[in-house]
């Protein structure tokens, strides 16, 4: 009898981190959809009933109601397991390979009110504090970051253009995390031991796409039937850098510098992501440069709505990259 993979301890843990409203919840819901659309066997399963319910609710909202998931207003903690295809162990002495247990990557998200670590410049439902000490909610976020070796960091360039608070939300927890890791003797090479996937969100926004186009960072996957534009991970750092130039506070470049200070270059990777993707006309089935927005703004008292089908971009890739890199460092069952 095979054990329930979702109940088993994950091989690796990934923490999702980002300013309030940066799209963590939407990314999770889009991850489920993006995995379902793939031909491989990756899937995401809740590690507990609350996390499963949360995932089901947000995914359904995205799919059927076409409502954007609301930003969380209370501290919530969720865990899911990303389960991959079983890895075949090589047989010895000519024996037939045996299927091994599937890859498992734990994903933790502390879905917290805004201002948890911010300066309170734009609180989103909870009190703010000048630093990260004392508050148990902050401790929990730090615990999650400390226990994970992979981080998905969401950077919302539109929010940064409007509020310019990305560095505020990053600085304090990063400093506290470094403090903990140093105390634990895990600051060996002068860097945090974590791998970090920096996701530049809202790639579907015209301002972001046009920035990428202006810098000639766009490419199209020849296998993509919709011909959706993408930015490769190699070019995503430049896009990130370019978008930092229009920060409302002017502090966005400090986000990039902090990433370089605290994370080893080999352990950072940038992704231009979009949870909803671009609009593709059902009749033409092709990306149209004249009409690609996939979001219809709502009335004053309504949330925005998704216009057409979802085409998540670079939603699965950060998770799998982290899984691969973590597996390479501390192989357990392997990640394919």
């Amino acid at each position: 009898m095979q054990p329930d993979p979702s109940r088993e301890r994950p091989d690796h843990n990934i923490a999702m981190w980002g300013a309030p409203g940066s799209g963590k919840t939407t990314l999770l819901a889009a991850l489920f959809i993006a995995l379902t659309k793939r031909d491989d066997d990756w899937k995401i399963i809740g590690s507990d009933p609350a996390s499963s319910d949360y995932l089901i609710e947000k995914t359904n909202a995205l799919l059927r109601g076409k409502l954007f998931p609301e930003a969380s207003m209370a501290l919530e903690r969720y865990h899911w397991t990303l389960i991959g295809p079983a890895v075949r162990k090589p047989g010895f002495w000519g024996r037939k390979a045996k299927p091994g247990p599937p890859a498992r990557i734990g994903i933790g998200m502390i879905d917290a009110p805004g201002g948890l670590f911010g300066t309170g410049r734009r609180p989103a439902g909870g009190p703010s504090a000048p630093d990260g000490s004392g508050d148990p909610r902050r401790q929990e976020l730090l615990d999650n970051l400390e226990q994970s070796r992979g981080i998905v960091f969401l950077y919302d360039p539109i929010r940064e253009f409007t509020f310019g608070d990305a560095f505020d939300h990053m600085h304090a927890p990063l400093t506290r995390l470094a403090e903990r890791m140093l105390a634990a003797g895990e600051f060996a090479d002068g860097k945090l031991p974590h791998h970090i996937a920096v996701c530049v969100t809202k790639f579907d926004d015209p301002r972001v796409l046009e920035t990428a186009e202006r810098r000639r960072l766009l490419s199209v996957d020849i296998d993509d039937p919709y011909r959706l534009p993408r930015v490769t991970s190699e070019d995503a750092r430049e896009l990130f850098h370019e978008l930092c130039q229009v920060s409302a506070s002017g502090n966005a470049d400090m986000v990039l510098k902090s990433l370089d200070q605290f994370f080893h270059p080999d352990r950072i990777r940038f992704f231009a992501t979009s949870s909803i993707g671009f609009y593709v006309d059902r009749r033409t089935k092709r990306f149209d440069w004249d009409d690609f927005q996939n979001m219809v703004p709502g009335e004053a008292d309504e949330d925005s709505r998704i216009r057409g089908r979802l085409h998540p971009i670079n939603v699965v890739e950060p998770m799998l990259w982290l899984g691969q890199r973590l597996a390479a460092i501390r192989p357990a069952t392997g990640v394919s």
Partner: peptide
């Protein structure tokens, strides 16, 4: 607008 622009208003279906 006739085509997608930074206004984020969706383009006219008839262009």
């Amino acid at each position: 607008p006739a085509r997608t622009d930074q206004s984020r208003i969706l383009p006219c279906p008839h262009r």
